[in-house]
Each structure stands twice: as structure tokens, then as C-alpha cells.
């Protein structure tokens, strides 16, 4: 499996991943500003480049306007533009970079939610690996009773990471399973319980209510549970991520985000707009399919990778 593959440094991976589109973006910027006067046309082109990175039209307009205010009419270089934009983006993202603190309760209950195919189960496997390595006793609950073989998938992750997996029958009641898992976690002295859920589109009302029910049911055992509800977002998602965060947050009290598939050519630029709008903590990013491919989210790294500032040997200083 992939985890046996030789590991490369995570920054290198992220950079390599971002390379294709980043280089497109930065080449674009270079083409626009090889020392030229910052006029309206140049700003327009800059705005479009940000849009092409999934930042969304309004965030792109905002960043461009902010940038234009200070430099308008001046001669600027490509490097200055990248640097300045990376700084603006860092400023937006920095307040959101926060790891998930699971030490505040025992068992600490985490509900993992998201639309189909974003990587919830894989993320749970990685989280299990992360906290097991910190010496915590972790339990997994196979709450995705809908998708074929999702339970087996989580069980394999349980074996890989040495965690107990609580599973029921396929098509069973996810809320009942979560309840049972929490009971088990309490009696086992488990530190962390990670509850997987079936992927669901946020506009499916019934399915969203089902998710709310899981949260309600675990509260019967532990009123504060779930202590965290993680929304897993796919970095390839475009502006629909806004709707996802909005609805999941409203119905399941999402406490933080995990962004997956950042090792691909999509850059997750929508994250900048999300951070600005929702101010939700971004706990971690997924950069591969292996158990160790989960990284803490670092605002500056992300912003610099996005803008390609690190190109030219500066990466070594990180």
C-alpha cells in the first residue's frame, strides 16, 4: 500500500503537489508584472489569476483592491506582488491555523462529517495514527453504514493503526452505533473516539437531520459530546465549499475543518475565502493516501505555496 512507499518531506510534497498550478499562477503573475506600472488593466489581470486559483471572484476582488490601494501607479516587480499577496493571505489564514486539542475531555469525542468522497474515512485513519503516536488510546466508530464496504475500510485502518473499531451491520442506525461506541469508549478508558459518518450532500435535508441525530444521541451519554465536529473538505472543490461549510455548520455545529487532497493540482484557494467568512479553525491538511500524510495547517506555508513565493531556494529556511 502507499504508506510503504518512500516518504518525502511534507513541504516538498505539498510544493510538488502545488507546483503545476502554482507555476501556472506564478508564471502568470510574472507575465503580468515584469516590472511594469500597476494600472487598472494590470490589477484586472491579477484578479483573474487569483480567481483561477479558486479564491472566488469576491475574495479575488478584495485582495486585488487592497493590493492596488498601496501600490497603484507604482512600478512593481513580480516578486513584490507575490510577496505582498502571500502576506495578505497569511493575515487572513493565520487566525484559523489551530491544531485539534483533544486533551480537554476523556473520552474526547470527534464526529467527522462531510459530503461524499472528500476523504472522511482516510482522514480518520490518519488522525488515529497521529494520536496513537502521541500515546493516546484511540477508538474508531464505523458510522458510515451506507456506503458499500465503508465499514471494512475503517476496520483495515483500525488494524493498521492498532485501534479498536466499533462496527455494526451494514445499513444499520449510525446514531445507535455512535451511542454504543461511546459507551464502550467510556468503559475501556479510551482517550479519543473518532466517529465516521456516511458522506452526504448538504442539500439533502433528511440525511442532514440524520447527522444532527447522531450528535443529539451521543449527548445523552456525555452532554458536551461531540467535543469536536470536523468537516472534511476536498481541496478540488470550488465555490460550493461555501455552501458546504454554511449548511454543515448550521446543522452539526462544525468546530473545525480538515482539508484533503492538497497534494494534487488543486490548491484549495477557496480556503482563503472560507477563513475570511467563517473564521473556523483549520486543524489539518491531507497530502497523500498514507497513514502519515496528515499535516498541521500552517497559514504562511499555505499562502506562500499558493503564491509560489518559496521558489528560488527559500524553502530550506522553513
Amino acid at each position: 500500500m502507499t504508506e510503504d512507499a518512500p516518504k518525502t518531506g511534507w513541504l516538498a510534497r505539498l510544493k510538488a503537489g502545488l507546483q503545476r498550478s502554482t507555476s501556472k499562477l506564478t508564471e502568470g503573475i510574472a507575465a503580468v508584472f515584469t516590472k511594469r506600472k500597476l494600472d487598472q488593466a494590470a490589477l484586472g489581470e491579477l484578479e483573474e489569476l487569483l480567481i483561477a486559483a479558486d479564491l472566488g471572484p469576491s475574495t479575488a476582488a478584495l485582495l486585488t483592491a487592497e493590493f492596488g490601494k498601496t501600490r497603484f501607479g507604482k512600478d512593481v516587480t513580480d516578486q513584490e506582488v507575490k510577496q505582498a499577496l502571500a502576506e495578505s493571505i497569511t493575515a487572513i489564514l493565520a487566525p484559523c491555523a489551530a491544531p485539534l486539542n483533544v486533551a480537554t475531555a476523556k473520552p474526547f469525542v470527534v464526529l467527522v462529517v462531510g459530503v461524499n468522497g472528500t476523504g472522511k474515512t482516510t482522514t480518520i485513519g490518519k488522525l488515529a495514527q497521529l494520536y496513537r503516536a502521541q500515546g493516546l488510546k484511540v477508538m474508531l466508530a464505523a458510522g458510515d453504514t451506507f456506503r458499500a464496504a465503508a465499514i471494512s475500510q475503517l476496520q483495515i485502518w483500525g488494524e493498521r493503526t492498532g485501534c479498536k473499531v466499533i462496527a455494526g451491520a451494514a445499513n444499520g442506525d449510525a446514531a445507535a452505533l455512535a451511542f454504543q461506541a461511546l459507551q464502550q469508549a467510556q468503559s475501556d478508558g479510551t482517550d479519543l473516539l473518532l466517529i465516521d459518518t456516511a458522506g452526504r450532500l448538504h442539500n439533502k435535508k433528511d440525511l442532514m437531520q440524520e447527522l444532527a441525530k447522531i450528535a443529539r444521541v451521543v449527548k445523552k451519554l456525555v452532554p458536551e459530546a461531540p467535543h469536536a465536529t470536523l468537516l472534511v473538505l476536498d481541496a478540488t472543490t470550488g465555490q460550493n465549499a461555501h455552501a458546504q461549510v454554511e449548511v454543515f455548520r448550521e446543522l452539526t455545529q462544525v468546530t473545525g475543518l480538515v482539508v484533503t487532497k492538497l497534494d494534487g493540482s488543486a490548491k484549495g484557494g477557496v480556503l482563503v475565502a472560507l477563513a475570511d467568512r467563517f473564521k473556523l479553525p483549520i486543524h489539518a491538511i491531507g497530502v497523500g493516501e498514507g497513514a502519515n500524510d496528515l499535516r498541521p495547517f500552517r497559514a504562511e506555508d499555505f499562502a506562500r505555496s499558493l503564491m509560489g513565493v518559496d521558489e528560488g531556494g527559500k524553502a530550506g529556511s522553513e
Partner: peptide, 15 residues
């Protein structure tokens, strides 16, 4: 391809 895909859809399809 997921209908929710962003600007990267073009990269993915081309590649």
C-alpha cells in the same frame, strides 16, 4: 468528475 470541482477541473481533464 465531481460537479463540485473548482477551477482545477480543467487541469484534471487535460492531464
Amino acid at each position: 468528475v465531481d460537479a463540485m470541482t473548482g477551477q482545477d477541473a480543467v487541469n484534471t481533464a487535460t492531464q
